[in-house]
Design a protein around this nucleic acid. Structure first.
Lengths: 234, 234
DNA sequence: TGCGTTTTTCTTGTCGACAAATAAAATACA
DNA sequence: TGTATTTTATTTGTCGACAAGAAAAACGCA
């Protein structure tokens, strides 16, 4: 409300508005700041970001393309629901992509990839150390996305990124209050995976990727089955 | 140019413009009516479809999201190139998705799915019979997309659709003049695949899907290696 | 009061116009 | 004549306004 710069300052680079809105909304959706079902109002966003509805709209179209929001024609737009009834299809895809991307990384990575991967590994370890659930979740996703990049298959990478995004939402759901459960074990497994990739041991990478994925799936399923009645309400 | 209805007739339903432009451009891109590198001019499209640039733009944003067009910031928009140097990553992903989707279809299909699949199978057989390359290509893609749908994993389905789209462009490139080469063999293999799915024989479906995919990949690679110097120019 | 109809409200979809950014063309200068 | 610089042209990105569509609210009538 406080108009500090009085004489209309659209001091913002030309193409940057869309990206800014897109990135911010995306993060808010994945971190459940905007939980599933939250209404997305274009006018409100336009006011919030002090721009016209046009760039807002473009960001929303992109988010819709990735399935993060859903648009009712002529009516409202809202954050996509998490499909709990078909979680198994998500897990199936996730496990397969963990395997494939880790496997390909062992085969195709270059030295500089390892540095990046190790960087995210360190970030993740620090987050576990610091018991910061939100950071754990996002750095874990970044770690595995980096491995996928090293595998150099953009088709797999893009699907995997989408799955990791959805995984961020699901994990965020469970690690709201129980923020101490992301175990040291995962850190160790990450280290093993890095070692297999570096050694270019494809079969080991495959095996470790699969085991790691199933670890995570099992944990989520455990949490899920524990409090179905509660969280299904979301 | 001929303005048949003189008094401004925007006789077109509200949300339909975007879908119409999107569908049409998509088909033109996949059938190489718009070959890779073709410039996409918003104003021109707006005139062609007699609508404002806004809905055109939305359609383009969607197409860009699927990687079918590429946008140079503040400058031009053009149809995405086919990455011939990394065709192997495409083939890797394609083979895996053929396998996975066929496998899942054997496990998860419902009776009504088979009817749909058989419908596309018939369309494809008719196209082979009629030596219609363009129809062969698109019905083949539709056939496998239907199998993927029967597998009921939306993550795999969406990636597979994207791969089949890209495959349409690549095949279209080779079946411009040699329109008699899509063999009867593929029709027979399709029939075998349907049988395995119906029998819910998961391993057979996997095996047949893989073999079928590798068939196609081998054929494309053969064509590709034959006239690299020519088509690489595209 | 209960229910069908009309009115209002609210959000989205579309439009035409303008401004910024970049490439291409024209110009100046050595 | 060749190169640096200015000017023009073209295309995109953004804006504010208006109209359509659908739900909610108000209304009328039995």
């Amino acid at each position: 409300m406080a108009d500090t710069d009085s004489n209309s300052t659209p001091e913002r680079k030309r193409g940057s508005g869309v990206k800014m809105v897109y990135d911010l909304l995306r993060d808010e959706i994945l971190d459940l700041v905007l939980p599933p079902g939250s209404p997305i109002d274009e006018v409100q966003l336009a006011e919030r970001f002090k721009m016209s509805r046009t760039p807002i709209r473009e960001a929303l179209v992109r988010l819709a393309g990735e399935g993060l929001i859903e648009t009712l024609p002529n009516r409202s737009t809202m954050v996509s629901n998490i499909d709990f009834l078909n979680l198994n299809t998500f897990f199936d895809a996730l496990v397969l992509m963990y395997r494939v991307t880790t496997r390909l990384a062992a085969r195709n990575h270059r030295p500089e990839d390892l540095a990046i991967i190790r960087g995210f590994h360190a970030d993740y370890a620090a987050a576990v150390e610091g018991r910061n659930a939100l950071t754990m979740i996002s750095t874990n996703a970044a770690f595995h996305a980096a491995i996928a990049e090293a595998g150099r298959n953009p088709y797999f990478t893009s699907l995997f990124r989408r799955l990791l995004d959805e995984g961020r939402r699901i994990l965020r759901l469970y690690y709201r209050s129980y923020d101490e459960q992301f175990p040291q074990r995962f850190v160790d497994e990450h280290a093993e995976i890095i070692a297999a990739i570096e050694a270019r041991d494809i079969e080991a990478a495959d095996r470790l990727g699969k085991a790691h994925a199933e670890q995570i799936v099992a944990q989520v399923q455990k949490l899920f089955s524990r409090d179905v009645g509660i969280d299904i309400a979301l």
